[in-house]
Amino acid sequence: MSAAVASSSLLPELIQHFSHIITVFLMVSGLYIVIARGNLIKKLVGLSVFQTSVYLLYIAPGKIIGGTAPILASQYGVYSNPLPHVLILTAIVVGVATLALGLTLAVRLREAYGTIEEDEILALDQQAELEE
């Protein structure tokens, strides 16, 4: 396959799957933030972005353009799948709970260690270990 053909077929492909591309972008950037950042709050931000990507992953394929809520009436023929929405509602609740708990822990950590930087906490822990 020549390069020209590849690029010409890539663009429509990209447009067709743009929701997936956004999903993957959010997923990877969220994961990257979690891994790369040492600040406990920023890590949680990353985690939230990562979890948000999943919402999109579920909801996007369930939506049909022009589809409505599944109301059985003669004037509507095309329905969007409601189940993903319901599932994601639950997932959002879980995500919020996780975020809240994570932030609480960050507050407690700050009280206990006086910092919310991971490397500083690790250094303090190592010191404690040596004293033990």
């Binding site: 994961l31 979690v34 406990l40 890590k43 985690l47 990562f50 979890q51 999943v54 996780t98 708990l101 994570g102 822990l105 960050a106 407690r108 950590l109 206990a112 260690y113 906490i121 822990d125 404690a128």
Partner: peptide
């Protein structure tokens, strides 16, 4: 121990990634 908080936080991050 205050290290319990750090351990819990770490588990929260890794556990949430796993769950996701």
């Amino acid at each position: 121990d205050r290290r319990a908080l750090a351990a819990s936080y770490r588990y929260l991050i890794m556990g949430s990634i796993g769950a996701t």
